[in-house]
Design a protein around this nucleic acid. Sequence first.
DNA 1: GAGTGGTCTAGACCACGCA
DNA 2: GCGTGGTCTAGACCACTCC
Lengths: 253, 253
Amino acid sequence: MGTTQADPVQEPKYWHLKTVLTEALDSEFSVGEILPNERDLAARFGVARATLRQALEQLELEGRLQRRRGVGTTVAPPRVGVAVGSERHLWPGAAGDAWQPADCTSAVPPAAVADLLQTARDERVHTVRRSRVTHGQPVAAELLYIPASSVPDLSAIDAPSGTARARAVLRELQRADLEDQDQAVELGSASAEDAKELDRLPGAPVLVVTTRYHAGGRTAAVSVATYRADTCRLTFGASGRVEIHHDPERRAS
Amino acid sequence: MGTTQADPVQEPKYWHLKTVLTEALDSEFSVGEILPNERDLAARFGVARATLRQALEQLELEGRLQRRRGVGTTVAPPRVGVAVGSERHLWPGAAGDAWQPADCTSAVPPAAVADLLQTARDERVHTVRRSRVTHGQPVAAELLYIPASSVPDLSAIDAPSGTARARAVLRELQRADLEDQDQAVELGSASAEDAKELDRLPGAPVLVVTTRYHAGGRTAAVSVATYRADTCRLTFGASGRVEIHHDPERRAS
DNA sequence: GAGTGGTCTAGACCACGCA
DNA sequence: GCGTGGTCTAGACCACTCC
């Protein structure tokens, strides 16, 4: 009855690698430092490159590493805390918000958004693109969906598209009374378009924040914002910011 | 102006595969249905199994698929909306919350948590494990860190560990005035321990929600909750729930 | 034991950033 | 042009679930 076995419980190699690398990152590397390339690292650990990459991918997902094609792998700084839920009762585009309007067009929203807006599935709405930058780095790309009925007085004289129109639409939106807003966060992967704005490859993991703005008893606007999951920590309802930590991996001893 | 490009712009195979599969899922499959196995699918699409897997991994990440070793790949139901930020001004363990206490021990918290708690890095605190179940499925595992000073009247007579003690600690916590709470969400990967509770493999993507509870001008407790990223959509501050949609991938036309 | 997804290998070529 | 990470292949074996 030998349960005595020291049981090398078949921990996958890439998992063990991840542990080893994590410890090395904690003790022997400093932020911004570049790691040896993948081929060298794989050789050093005696594994195939694909296996090493599996470990690196997880570490990048956890925000410990940053990899760039043609450049190399570097040690990532701690995640940035990004306030997402603190400006309650504020319209998008309110003075001093962190977003920069980029463009405005008109389009039929995805069915899911049309349902949130309670518009017909083939109804065109204003779409405003905005981007959010922190510490000089792009952290989020947003698409705002605003039914024409939410900005009834939008002047036809304003520019038909572009940044100017984006500002005009947001300005008009401010005139309604914002009653409430609610948000949801889920994991997604960057579309080709978002990826470009976020300086990542398509498919990169993102945190998708969907916000509904309520006014006049209906949903006056919907925002779909995609945040870089590797570099961002979304904060909700905090008063003071605390710049601290990461590594969601390690728990109690 | 030539946006006319037929430009075979070198879209990676796995990306194209993902698109094709997504469309197939939308039109030809229903929730719960099982897909052909990976070897067959790969053959059908004329790619290596590894390439097909890259596409499946992304789809699973986006909550469209569910894969289980030894079983197969099935079409996942839409993500569940899980209320996370609505019970403001409520202590963990308040009557009717969604959590079920599982265990309670005492341990030195990770440095990051000790900093949040403003305790010494080698100070032991109470740690309460809880789990959250929705629709019969486990969706989250939580670790609560509670300094002894937050529950000063905890009777030494209570059970030294186990569910009973967990309840006792939470009960004592209610006696303080909760002044505020703030939360942060970030992407992480499941520890071996969490993975088991969440019925996933270690390393599975999770949304890590860190909550600080403020009372008496200090941080009275810290909660680190890990939610299954594949199945959960975290909702904040909503009044009414709206069960709708997913696919954060598709945006405006 | 049969069939599934999970891990791993040892190669190859490609896209990109930079000098 | 060189070195980097990103994609892809065609195999192999393993861990798991279910019959």
